[in-house]
């Protein structure tokens, strides 16, 4: 039962992560491979604040969101000077820089040793230390993120994002500030990605930089692609599928390390396969709906 709850919590965390990437990659057409970096920023912020300064969860969460948003804002004003494949390379670069900061700033982040002893979440005197209570908290936040994103994507701003991802110059000619819209969308994505980061840190109670690598970014991006780029529910289903997959492979009797690699092979294969489906571009798909 504990094991099933653990998987359910991991699924919820990845649902939140992939949903926050849907608005960046799906709606605004900016394929970002730096998302695990923002996830990590959220986790590290709350870990440092609660272990070193003893701040409560309800204070850490907004601080983590703001820090992640600020960093994303500064980064995106620079990175969004480029488009398409150059943008991907830049976000990869950002991901590596964030990872090296976590890994090398020994005095602050404790480097590869990580930060142990992160306390469980406590809200108004109630401890979320059992798995079932944590699951409910994560579920509440996931639902909140879903509705925030649903609201944004259905709003006029969401329409601007859709427009710019389909034809940037045309959207510009309608008098929309494309650059600002992109920066805002990237920043929102990063802010929302910090939330699962905070939850993750309090859930596992020990974090180290290896949870926030490029591979993690690629994994989150694969969830979004498999979910259908612009579909929030699709991303949720894809997250569930990809998190359960290695567990299922282990259940079939595959050794641990091979199961992890098999998952990589399967989602790599799905990525290639999905590209055949999307070969006319991601836009055509949205027009069908």
């Amino acid at each position: 039962m504990e094991y099933l709850l653990h998987i359910a919590i991991m699924i919820l965390l990845y649902i939140m992560l992939s949903q926050s990437l849907v608005i960046v990659a799906g709606y605004s057409g900016m394929i970002s491979l730096a998302h695990a970096g923002f996830y990590g920023i959220g986790a590290y912020t709350t870990a440092l604040l609660s272990v070193k300064l003893g701040f409560p969860f309800l204070v850490n969460l907004p601080i983590a969101i703001i820090i992640s948003g600020l960093i994303a804002f500064i980064i995106s004003t620079i990175a969004l000077r480029t488009v398409d494949d150059y943008f991907i390379i830049i976000t990869l670069g950002i991901q590596v820089v964030i990872f090296s900061l976590m890994n090398n700033l020994m005095e602050v982040t404790n480097g590869p040793l990580g930060i142990p002893g992160i306390p469980a979440i406590k809200i108004f005197g109630f401890w979320f230390d059992s798995k079932i209570s944590f699951l409910l908290l994560a579920l509440a936040l996931a639902v909140l993120i879903y509705f925030i994103l649903r609201y944004i994507t259905k709003s006029p701003f969401g329409l601007v994002l859709k427009g710019l991802s389909e034809d940037e110059i045309f959207t510009k000619s309608l008098g929309k500030n494309v650059y600002a819209a992109k920066v805002i969308s990237f920043t929102i994505g990063a802010m929302l990605a910090a939330i699962p980061g905070v939850l993750y840190a309090h859930y596992v109670t020990y974090i180290d930089p290896t949870s926030f690598t490029v591979d993690e970014s690629i994994f989150i991006f694969a969830i979004v692609i498999i979910g259908g780029m612009r579909s929030l529910l699709g991303a949720a289903l894809a997250a569930a599928f990809l998190v359960i997959l290695p567990e299922a492979l282990r259940f079939v009797g595959m050794p641990n390390n091979i199961a992890a690699n098999m998952r990589q092979i399967i989602y790599g294969g799905i990525l290639v396969f999905m590209m055949f489906r999307y070969s006319k571009g991601f836009i055509v798909k949205s027009q069908d709906k």
Binding site: D84, I88, I218, L271, M275, S279
Partner: peptide, 19 residues
């Protein structure tokens, strides 16, 4: 396909080879 599609599929291939 545009260059983005090709890039993502090459990423998928890289993951497969590496694993």
């Amino acid at each position: 396909s545009n260059t983005l599609i090709l890039l993502i599929s090459s990423l998928g291939l890289y993951i497969i080879i590496e694993s």
